[in-house]
Every structure is written in structure tokens, then in C-alpha cells.
């Protein structure tokens, strides 16, 4: 065997392995996809699996779309993402700037307060936070869903890390030029942190789009459901065809999957910064 042949064989074997593993991660979604487009006469489950819909039909997509108020849920999720992602990034950045670039009394206290939220896991906070939100009259409102999700220790840490890397001279130069702190924040710090902001945007989008437990606890009125909660609702509607549930689920993950595929090149960089931080 020539070295060249050995090289190509090894490479081919590597791709077989990589593809087999990929199938493990993508397979369950392919099964959903297949079920979503199968006609009523074709079995969803069989030995051996019969995955190609013959012919593919849109019946189930339409049924899922009308069984639950699908467009409303999609729109709700768009609203939650559109409001929460920019606001949480701004809140995080505002908090991170003085933590990174100013000295003041109580700085460590603020830092540790934010740090402590990482050890107040969502599961534990679910009930007491719901009680507080109820007391504030925010139960069953958009605000009740949105407000508690705006503080992110992760975002603050990542941005503090990034802001700390902005050279002191740049900020001092802006200050000597008579720049207001808010202007420095907006025109110096935020542009310098653009890659980090992108990462926070991506992770924020994914987590808000998929949010489930907190909206479920806060919302009684299903008209305000985000899409993930809508899918769980669809699954609970008696008599929902497995194909229809599959169709509804596929549509629900499509926007976030497409968004991720477009933005994925930023993710690894973000991980690198996050773990270092």
C-alpha cells in the first residue's frame, strides 16, 4: 500500500466516522421532518423505517398551523426576541463598563452580587420569582415574561472582559476631549466590543426563542405563548396526529436553526472568550 493510498483511506474512514456521528445528532430531526410530510396513508412508524414521504404533502403543516394559533405564537416569539435581546445586551454592557474601566467604592460588591446570580439557578427561583412577579401585578403579562430575563451574569462577565481590553489611552483621550461618559460608552466601548455583542445576540436569540419554563409559569393566557410553549400545547391537544405534531415542531425550530446556520462562525470565538472569562 502506497503512503498516498493509506492517507486517502484514513481520510475516507474519518469522514465515515464524522458522518455517522452527525447522523446521531441530526437523525431525530430527520425523523420529524419525514413524519411531517407523510401522507395519511403512509405509516409513520414501521420496521424497517420508511422515511421518504410518498408523496410529500403539506396537509399536516396546514393542520398544525390552524389547530393552535400558530402565527400568533411565532409573532410572540419574534416580539420576545426583538425586545429581550437588545435590552439585555444594553443592560449588560452598561453594567460591565464601570466594572471594567472605573474604580469606585462598592465595585466588588456589585461584581459579587452579579456573580451570585449564577448560583441562584432558575429552577430554585421559579416559585419565589413568580410570587414577586405576581405581587408586582405582572403575572400573565408580556412584561412578566420579559423583565426577569433581562439580567444576564454571563453577558456582564463577557462584556466586562472585553471592555477591560480596551486600551486605557483611548478612553483617556476621549475624556480629555471632553467626551461625556455615556458618549464614551456608546462611541468607544460598544464599537470595540462588536464581536462580543454578536455572540451575546446569538446566544440571546437562541435562549429566548426556546424559552419554555418561565413563560409557562407566568402565563395563563395562551395568546401570549412563545412558540416552544405553543408546541407543548399542541402536543397536549387530544387527537393531534403524530404527523401534525411533527409538522408543528419542525416549523417551530426552523427560524432558530436558520439563524444559527447564518451566524455559526461567531460561536466558537464566543466560547473561547466565555471560558477564559
Amino acid at each position: 500500500m502506497t503512503p498516498k493510498l493509506a492517507f486517502w483511506l484514513r481520510r475516507a474512514g474519518m469522514y465515515v466516522l464524522l458522518t455517522a456521528i452527525a447522523l446521531v445528532f441530526v437523525g431525530p430531526f430527520l425523523i420529524l421532518l419525514s413524519a411531517a410530510f407523510k401522507p395519511a396513508g403512509q405509516a409513520v412508524f414501521s420496521f424497517p423505517p420508511d422515511v421518504i414521504p410518498r408523496p410529500p404533502v403539506l396537509t399536516w403543516v396546514k393542520e398544525a398551523w390552524t389547530t393552535i394559533p400558530y402565527p400568533t405564537y411565532l409573532l410572540n416569539s419574534v416580539v420576545y426576541v426583538g425586545v429581550m435581546v437588545p435590552v439585555y445586551i444594553i443592560v449588560s454592557a452598561l453594567c460591565a463598563y464601570p466594572l471594567a474601566q472605573m474604580n469606585f467604592r462598592g465595585k466588588n460588591l456589585i461584581f459579587f452580587a452579579i456573580l451570585s446570580t449564577m448560583f441562584l439557578p432558575g429552577e430554585v427561583m421559579l416559585l419565589p420569582r413568580f410570587l414577586v412577579v405576581s405581587q408586582l401585578g405582572l403575572a400573565d403579562t408580556y412584561a412578566g415574561v420579559i423583565l426577569p430575563g433581562l439580567l444576564s451574569a454571563f453577558g456582564i462577565f463577557l462584556l466586562r472582559q472585553t471592555f477591560a481590553g480596551v486600551p486605557r489611552e483611548v478612553i483617556d483621550a476621549a475624556r480629555t476631549d471632553g467626551c461625556h461618559e455615556l458618549r464614551i460608552f456608546w462611541h468607544v466601548m460598544l464599537p470595540a466590543a462588536r464581536p462580543t455583542l454578536a455572540i451575546l445576540g446569538i446566544f440571546g436569540f437562541i435562549s429566548v426563542w426556546n424559552s419554555f419554563i418561565w413563560p409557562m409559569v407566568v402565563l395563563k393566557d395562551s395568546a401570549m405563548y412563545p412558540i416552544a410553549l405553543g408546541i407543548s400545547y399542541l402536543a397536549g391537544v387530544t387527537g393531534t396526529d403524530v404527523r401534525s405534531l411533527a409538522a408543528g415542531t419542525v416549523i417551530s425550530i426552523l427560524p432558530v436553526v436558520i439563524f444559527f446556520m447564518i451566524m455559526q462562525r461567531h460561536v466558537l470565538e464566543g466560547m473561547r472568550g466565555a471560558v477564559k472569562g
Binding site: L18, I21, A22, F25, V26, G27, P28, F29, I31, L32, A35, A43, V44, F45, S46, F47, P49, I206, W209, N210, F212, I227, A228, L229, I231, S232, A235, V242, L245, A246, T249, S252, I253, V256, V257, F260, M261, Q264, V267, L268
Partner: peptide, 29 residues
């Protein structure tokens, strides 16, 4: 490949739960 392995992370646990119910079905894959 990295992206494909990461795919389940970006989807909601609800969707993942539904998908795996199909995998775990008695006549499932």
C-alpha cells in the same frame, strides 16, 4: 460537522422531546 453536532443545542427542549418520542416509539427507529 461541528455545526451539525451543535444543532440540538439551538433547538428547544420541547422540540427535542417530541423528536425523541418518535425515536423511542415502539415501532421507532
Amino acid at each position: 460537522f461541528r455545526m451539525l453536532y451543535y444543532l440540538p443545542v439551538v433547538t428547544s427542549m420541547v422540540a427535542v422531546g417530541v423528536a425523541w418520542e418518535y425515536v423511542f416509539n415502539q415501532q421507532g427507529v
